[in-house]
Design a protein around this nucleic acid. Structure first.
Length: 466
DNA sequence: TCACCTGGCACATTTGAAACGG
DNA sequence: ACCGTTTCAAATGTGCCAGGTG
């Protein structure tokens, strides 16, 4: 865990209203733990898949975290974004994920803003923080603010804690980034691994209707002979695999593996966890040095499972600088993210092609920053949305504001936080806030592994102008 | 031909308004 | 009039599956 003391405010001098902001709330130990790690681990061991649909699909399991070590009176903003795990596209081939080529160009990068943001540390710490309403989509023209992903690509959620009184001061605030290796997943439009399907059905309350022991006799019993045959075939194949290169526990037909009472499933899975880990569907990638996650091995995994701080600002902001300096092609950033360096200019960033309906933008409103019960207050002057935009533009020369990046909240525009966005980067000259002051080595955490090194180079706000 | 995607379907949960009673 | 509980329908979230697409 890295102390926030090591961090610097994002970039450049803060505005007058924020002059003493982050420093006033300086703190040392923010702790983030993933809720339901066992469930995540169960999925991870099988190779988590997340359905992405045009209208957007929730994650399951959904991201739920616990926070500690925040300053109770200081306000924080919580963000989640998805970064590619690597630069490859995958295909599901005979019960295993295989590399199917280079990754497609990175879709417009979106960041999901937790609807409670901004809220005091006490609020975040008093109960677990759920990102239930975060949705994933494969629609690059999505206008609902869902996170856009490519099917058959692997991603990794990143959680960001930004100490800021409101969304508009985020830009000058310190932030910390956390990830949990077990939350990585493959985006798919249809489930490939039947074991994952079964696991989802068993654990997702919305899918109760598909449980064998459930009340839904209709669907299950109405399955066509062909379907039954297909399933039997699949079961056969799995069993064959188990004879060849997998322990029975993992490669057994999912329908066998999860037969019986729902309540029994988690226990069994816990017991089988270690075995499954060894024979996860990613084995091939590991063999081919494609799968680089958690190479530290089982010893370190446990540590990762409980909490992990990844690219804290001091360490990965330089990479953001590099990232911004890369050519506009998102594919280049995906495919060559290891190459690292680049110019410090990011004027050619690819704009987020998604747009927000004008009426949405027009509804955007100021974030209410009410009086706080305690602690030093450095509240920005009241401002409306236009004011924010103006502020942003006025800072373009050296410390731009929030334009250009699509930061979404599940709240609609009519809701308190609003879904605030802006006319899109193409309408504004790109800002230059990423000064190259930081020369700290890219990743220097104890848990550093190549995987982190790669994906952490994705900027927090890829297309943003923070 | 095949891998992948899409849209409709049935079933489940969630949510919020209406109804009701104390 | 207010509050708490119950009921019910609409909205929403699921995986399944047939058909479409490149």
């Amino acid at each position: 865990m890295q102390s926030i003391r090591d961090m610097k405010p994002n970039y450049g001098p803060p505005p007058p209203s924020m002059a003493a902001g982050p420093d006033a709330y300086m703190q040392s130990n923010i702790r983030m733990t993933l809720e339901d790690p066992e469930l995540w681990k169960n999925f991870h061991d099988l190779g988590t898949e997340m359905i992405i649909t045009k209208p957007g699909r929730r994650m399951f399991p959904h991201c739920k975290i616990n926070l500690a070590g925040l300053v109770p009176c200081a306000k924080y903003i919580l963000l989640v974004d998805m970064v590619p795990v690597d630069g490859f596209r995958y295909k599901w081939n005979k019960e295993k994920w295989e590399v199917a080529g280079k990754a497609e160009p990175q879709p417009p990068c979106r960041t999901y803003l937790h609807p409670d943001s901004p809220a005091p540390g006490s609020h975040w710490m008093k109960q677990s923080v759920s990102f239930l309403k975060l949705k994933l989509t494969n629609n690059t023209l999505d206008q609902h603010g869902h996170i856009i992903l490519h099917s058959m690509h692997r991603y990794h959620p990143r959680f960001h804690i930004v100490q800021a009184d409101d969304l508009f001061s985020v830009r000058w605030s310190v932030f910390q980034t956390f990830t949990f290796p077990e939350t990585s997943f493959t985006a798919v439009t249809a489930y490939q691994n039947t074991s994952i399907t079964k696991l989802k059905i068993d654990h997702n309350p919305f899918a109760k209707g598909f449980r064998d022991e459930g009340t839904n006799k209709k669907r299950r019993s109405n399955k066509s002979p062909a379907c039954v045959e297909k399933r039997a075939k699949m079961s056969d194949m799995l069993n064959r695999d188990s004879d060849e290169d997998s322990p029975p526990d993992f490669s057994r037909s999912s329908y066998e593996a999860y037969d019986g009472e729902e309540g029994h499933v988690p226990k069994r899975k816990e017991a089988e966890g270690i075995k499954r880990e060894r024979y996860s569907p990613w084995a091939t990638e590991r063999e081919h040095s494609v799968r680089t996650e958690s190479p530290a091995g089982a010893d370190h995994r446990d540590v990762y499972n409980t909490e992990q701080l990844v690219p804290a600002p001091a360490s990965y902001q330089p990479q953001r600088v590099h990232e911004f300096g890369k050519p506009p092609s998102p594919s280049s950033s995906v495919g060559s993210s290891n190459s690292g360096s680049g110019s410090s200019s990011f004027e050619s960033r690819v704009p987020d092609v998604a747009t927000v309906p004008e009426q949405d933008a027009s509804k955007l409103r100021t974030l209410e920053v009410g009086p706080q019960p305690c602690g030093p207050q450095h509240l920005p002057a009241p401002q409306d949305y236009n004011g924010v935009l103006n502020m942003s533009m006025s800072h373009q020369a050296g410390k731009p504001g929030v334009i250009g990046h699509h930061l979404y909240s599940p709240y609609g525009a009519e809701q308190p936080l609003g879904q605030w966005s802006n006319p899109g980067p193409t309408q504004y000259p790109p800002p230059h806030h990423l000064t190259a002051d930081y020369t700290t080595p890219a990743v220097h955490h104890g848990y550093h592994h190549s995987n982190v090194a790669e994906w952490s180079q994705y900027p927090l706000f890829s297309y943003s102008c923070w």
